[in-house]
Design a binder for these strands. Structure first.
Lengths: 310, 310
DNA sequence: TCAATATTTCTCATATTGAGAACAAACGTT
DNA sequence: AACGTTTGTTCTCAATATGAGAAATATTGA
């Protein structure tokens, strides 16, 4: 079984926070002998001295303080877990997830139209990587999410809604790039693991027999594009993102091979669980795609689908 | 004592992940009867049905799935706790938090210089609201964070680094705005609760005796500015953000009263716990502020300070 | 209908836990 | 130096929790 136990953590944390065994015991409504015993048992199980016995007191070691910091996090998360269970889930709002790039470039027009048609719907738009958004959708944190290929979302319904072209961007300090080796030792700037575009970047590098060397992880496209413009590194972004950013004028755009450049954005949701808010968005997206000249959406609402291209 | 226990969480998570009691028992090297017993005890203690007994199997309820998600986080953090104790302290990455607006407008130049000076430092830049960032800093999720006034961060050190001017932005469908009543029934677009700029917006409305009526919550400045440009609503943003976004050309900018418009961004960190990476950033920021013509930073490194203006 | 599968209930031996008494060491006051 | 107080530790023991295994029950599919 496990070496650590939430009660143990609470005890160690209290001894440090309150300055001793007796005070900790008092606060926790325990007897001092039990506090002593539990601390010693934990030390033995972990094989680590959490305290130095000095005089009449216990002085925390560095490892004792480290454990106490982690104990705080664990105990807080445990309390949050119980609270969340008690509260259940409240769905007073249309919680929609999106890639940050999609939120900035594709959604404003859509959401403006949506707000006009449904002014009473309160929207909460959260952004994240494809992997994280699918996770939140699975956990019902959000009702629907715009994600990019490649993705795997068994049990979820999908509708392809936007067509993106991915491009490599670099500062002017980088010449023409046709293959990964042209990059030399450039720093890569990307979203966190779980971002489909980052995966494309890593695929492309892998095709050229290269590995990502230095990676900076940013959670904001304006920051990524601006840093690329400043010469910090290179990145892969949808071309549509560049249209809205002034910093894009200062970057060099390199096309990618067609099998990497072509990328679809899909809307995902739980089949059979559509609120009226989501239904409204879906029909608006059908109309929007036709207006933009994209192909008609592939409506896979009735069957789970993987977003991998066959 | 506590209602939840790490072993319980592991069991519930395994039942859901492996599709049943028998399989979970096998994976966990337990007997099925014990898995059943532990699940039922936990359900009783929490007062919540985690599973529906259907046919020969257990179907997770929504709360069972919610708990399983939390279980993952708890178990991961527990493993990390033990690993950290075994390894001592590992600082492999400089985890830096920032407001999204600051990340896109102020940090690229700073980070480009930083990367040149410290190419070996791996940076992970996360964005969030002031409130959320302070929370993450307190929990040692991040080492430092750029936040905006007003904030309250007892125990943390602060250095004022950027001066921002907040402005109200609207679409062209809104005329001249001098006071809140000029807005009529416009929709407000803002970051989530915990965002200092949103608080300013609500203060300003309050001064005019108005309440926020319809609020859309977005987590992306490009999306906010683009939606304002599309006529969806109004927002308060730092003027520096507009410089980098093309959509800003299509918005109307209204100055705010000086006591609301003037806003400082501060870097926060734990006093006495600066890594070399953070020290490098702080000295770079000192130099950067001088170059930009901003006033010298108020260096409050040696005492906790509240960001409220006196 | 019957065998296989999956979960549950029940029993029991063992382990863990927490309280309380007694003890030892350190510290401060007189 | 003596003494009282404070702090942490060791030891004992009763109560509770835990995990394994056998038996029972319900469901499913051939």
């Amino acid at each position: 079984m496990r070496n650590i136990d939430l009660d143990d953590l609470e005890i160690v944390h209290a001894v440090i926070a309150h300055g001793g065994v007796a005070r900790a015991a008092h606060v926790l409504h325990r007897v001092p002998s039990n506090v002593t015993t539990r601390v010693k048992q934990l030390e033995a199980r972990l094989g680590v001295a959490l305290f130095v016995r000095r005089g009449r007191g216990l002085v925390p070691t560095e490892q004792g303080r480290l454990l106490s910091a982690y104990a705080e996090r664990m105990l807080r998360l445990a309390d949050e877990t119980e609270s969340a269970l008690r509260a259940g889930r409240l769905l007073g709002t249309f919680r929609l997830g999106s890639l940050e790039s999609t939120a900035g470039s594709r959604l404003p027009g859509v959401l403006a139209r949506y707000n006009q048609a449904h002014p009473a719907v309160r929207i909460e738009l959260v952004t994240g990587t494809t992997g994280a958004l699918i996770g939140r959708l699975s956990r019902h944190d959000i009702e629907a999410a715009f994600v990019s290929e490649p993705f795997n979302a068994p049990g979820l319904a999908a509708q392809a809604v936007f067509e993106e072209e991915l491009v490599l961007i670099s500062g002017h300090n980088v010449g023409v790039v046709r293959r990964p080796a042209d990059l030399g030792r450039a720093t890569l700037i990307a979203f966190a693991n779980g971002c489909s575009y980052r995966r494309r970047l890593e695929e492309w590098l892998g095709e050229g027999g290269m590995l990502a060397d230095a990676v900076l992880e940013f959670a904001s496209y304006p920051a990524i594009v601006a840093c690329v413009a400043a010469g910090t590194g290179v990145a892969i972004v949808p071309r549509s993102v560049l249209l809205g950013l002034r910093a894009a004028e200062a970057v060099r755009v390199h096309p990618l091979p067609a099998h990497l450049a072509r990328n679809r954005t899909h809307l995902l949701w739980h089949p059979g669980q559509e609120s009226l808010a989501l239904q409204g968005l879906r029909s608006l997206l059908g109309a929007a795609s036709a207006i933009d000249g994209a192909p008609p959406p592939v409506d896979a609402a009735c069957r789970p689908v993987s977003g991998r291209q066959a």
